[in-house]
Structures are given as structure tokens and as C-alpha cells.
């Protein structure tokens, strides 16, 4: 059985970058590479070992599978979490870097990306999907 790639979006609510990271992650997992990817929930990942089963399963998955982190800002919250608990992520995608390549696409707000924002999320998702393919080819 082929291994899956774990997608961990920062998902931060305060910035539009967090919203883009979340939308792009969903597009990859639902539409572009549904058979090769799985979403790992960042806050659950950090809550490992707490009551019930916490995020230990997420951490163990990331230890044994390649991961792609998606960062909505320069804080690199997802990458730092994976580094800390499961080892180095295979790739990190920076939303800002891709957004700067498409200045004509301006997301409406953090609450509602709007048409432009969703187009940008689709482009980011395509970039993530390319990285997923590269990881599968390198195995």
C-alpha cells in the first residue's frame, strides 16, 4: 500500500494567510490528490498526550510519513510543530511567496476569501499537489 503525505496547514484565524492555508489544504485533500494525502490538524497535533487520545496519532503519522506544512505567515507555526514532535517536514509552502507572484489576485478578507482569494487558494493547492507528486516520485 502506498504511503500518504500528511498536509498540515497553519490554519490561523487572525490572518488571511491562515484562511488561504486552510482552503488550499482542503482543495488538495478533497479534489486534487484525495488518494495520496491526508490532513493533519495542527492544534490537535500540538495537544498530543493530553486527555483521551489527543494528537499522538497525528504525531506518530508525521513520524512515519512525509509531511508538507503550509504557512500563512512568517511565524512558521506548522513547521515548528512538526519539527518539534515528529521530525523535519519534507517541504514547507509559504503562502506569502506564492501570493506575491499573483498580485492581481487579492483575497477579500480573512473571513471570506471571495472569488480572487479562492483562485489564489486553487493556485496554492496546485503547488502543494506538485510537491506531493515529487514526494511520491522520489520514493
Amino acid at each position: 500500500m502506498k504511503k500518504k503525505v500528511g498536509i498540515i496547514a497553519c490554519s490561523g484565524e487572525k490572518l488571511v494567510g491562515g484562511t488561504l492555508s486552510r482552503a488550499a489544504a482542503r482543495i488538495v485533500v478533497e479534489k486534487l490528490r484525495p488518494n495520496n494525502t491526508i490532513i493533519l490538524c495542527q492544534p490537535l497535533f500540538m495537544a498530543g498526550g493530553l486527555e483521551r487520545h489527543g494528537g499522538q496519532q497525528e504525531r506518530d503519522f508525521a513520524k512515519n510519513h512525509p509531511t508538507i506544512t503550509i504557512e500563512g505567515c512568517e511565524e512558521e507555526c506548522a513547521k515548528i510543530a512538526v519539527d518539534k514532535y515528529s521530525g523535519k517536514p519534507a517541504t514547507t509552502i509559504y503562502i506569502q511567496e506564492i501570493a506575491e507572484m499573483y498580485p492581481e489576485l487579492k483575497p477579500k478578507s480573512r473571513e471570506d476569501l471571495g472569488e480572487d482569494g479562492m483562485k489564489l487558494a486553487e493556485i496554492i493547492a496546485e503547488e502543494i499537489a506538485k510537491k506531493v507528486d515529487e514526494l511520491f516520485q522520489s520514493k
Binding site: C10, G12, K14, L15, Q42, P43, E75, C77, A81, E111
Partner: peptide
């Protein structure tokens, strides 16, 4: 829910923060 509270119902009384940043 958080966006409705922060943007509309309790606009000047509340604020949001990213949970991943807190966890970090």
C-alpha cells in the same frame, strides 16, 4: 462563530488570536 462575535456582535470588546501561534 468567532468571526461573527469579533466583527459584529461584540466588535469593540473582543479580539481574535491564532491558536497555532499561542501553541508555539
Amino acid at each position: 462563530t468567532a468571526y461573527i462575535v469579533v466583527n459584529e456582535l461584540a466588535k469593540d470588546k473582543t479580539t481574535l488570536e491564532c491558536l497555532p501561534l499561542i501553541v508555539k
